[in-house]
């Protein structure tokens, strides 16, 4: 891990980046912001870890907890909302038996996220399964896609 972090540090110095760019590199590399990585940078740059977390928790792009292997994003923009994105979410939660407040399945295979708008409103409601966009979705269609994924060996 240290090697990876060194590499990020070098790029950051070369590009005159800031805390946000470090966090973006971490998010890109690990899929979330690992605590030990933050501590490492905090020591190297003599910036308190709280500054990193203050920023990480402010922006929606950063995840503090590791996500599941497959990420399902349901768009909750206005156009998707009026075309029933809530039903997609509740359908998914039922399918995965997710308790209130939890967004990743116990086996860590799936994470459900809702985002404000992915910008493909012309084909609402929209969901993304591992970055692939699916338009004009219904809960049943979405679950069918997920079942195909469950059948396969899952992985990003």
């Amino acid at each position: 891990m240290e090697e990876v972090l060194e590499k990020i540090l070098t790029t950051y110095r070369k590009e005159e980046g800031n805390i946000i760019s470090i966090l973006q590199y971490l998010e890109e590399t690990f899929g979330y912001i690992p605590e030990n990585a933050v501590n490492w940078f905090s020591k190297k740059l003599v910036i308190p870890a709280s500054r990193f977390y203050g920023i990480a928790t402010f922006y929606a792009q950063f995840h503090i907890k590791p996500p599941g292997k497959n990420i399902i994003i349901v768009c909750s923009g206005t156009a998707c909302h009026v075309k029933g994105s809530d039903r997609l979410i509740s359908g998914l939660k039922r399918e995965f038996n997710l308790p209130e407040g939890e967004d990743t399945t116990a086996d860590r295979k799936f994470t459900i996220e809702r985002v404000a708008c992915v910008g493909t409103c012309g084909m609402s409601p929209v969901a993304l399964i591992n970055k692939q966009v699916y338009g004009k979705m219904t809960a049943n269609k979405l679950i069918k896609e997920i079942k195909i994924l469950k059948g396969k060996k899952t992985g990003r």
Partner: peptide
């Protein structure tokens, strides 16, 4: 930073 939900002009 087109953040309005329901907008994709700038994109």
């Amino acid at each position: 930073d087109e953040g309005d939900p329901g907008a994709f002009m700038d994109r």
